[in-house]
Amino acid sequence: MRKTLMKTVNYFLLAAVAVMVLIPFFWMLGTALKSEAEALHIPPMLLPKIYHFDNFAKAVRAEPLIRYFLNTLIVSIFVVLISTAISVLSAYAFARLTFRGRDFLFAVVLIAVMLPQEIMIITNFMTIAKLKWLNTFRALILPYCVNAFNIFLLRQTMKQIPEDLYIAARIDGLGNFRYLWKVVLPVAKPTILTTMLLSMIWIWDTYAWPNLVTTQDNLRLISNGLKNAFTTSTGSIQYELQMAAATLVTIPLILIFIALRKYIFSGITRGGIKG
């Protein structure tokens, strides 16, 4: 009897949390489907009378969202590929190889994990400006190509692969690179996918840096584009379009996340905390 009661309370609380989490999504989607009049209606309406799916098309037409989206996609593909490759290689060296200065170099990585990217912005901006790379894709891609946290996460995971596996593979005639490719990558797959998603989110969310190094609309990333969009010159906001755009921006990552959910969860939880 007490047990059932506790269980009920338990589920009730969890459901309450779930509702809290979902309210912003609900309001975003709900507003995105309202007509302009409904969006401005006082008091606000819980749901639109008619679902205005054309808001999405309108939002896309009103602002170069597709352009921003493509820019973000280009940058994130490059960043994800390059930074994953770089992180995997260095994490492997830290996890498996012995060499002079390993502890020192790894300490550098750990410190880099703690340092806020925002501190680097100043000098990086000067570097990019001096290189005359302002308003280029290079400026948007390169600084993101090394991610100390991903190196750390991957190294933790790779450390958990038993050393005997490595010795066995070496006796079987595999070199380091082949071992990395044939054994480490598949075994560390969840963590690698996680770091990929984390890099992707990073680019999707990044705001301050692109805002500094790009001034042209055709180079804007989605966060910057979205931030400035749908605000008229008088400062009033077209909420239904803004929310439609926000929905469009949110959906891709959610879909990727749901597709890779299984790996992501085990990846997040495998690397960080142990050892």
Binding site: D164, I167, R170, V183, P186, K189
Partner: peptide, 20 residues
């Protein structure tokens, strides 16, 4: 080097590749 020796080794905890 190990791969040129034609040696096989079995380990205490088997060292099987878990993903295969």
């Amino acid at each position: 080097s190990p791969e040129k020796r034609g040696v096989g080794m079995v380990f205490q905890n088997y060292a099987l590749y878990p993903h295969l």
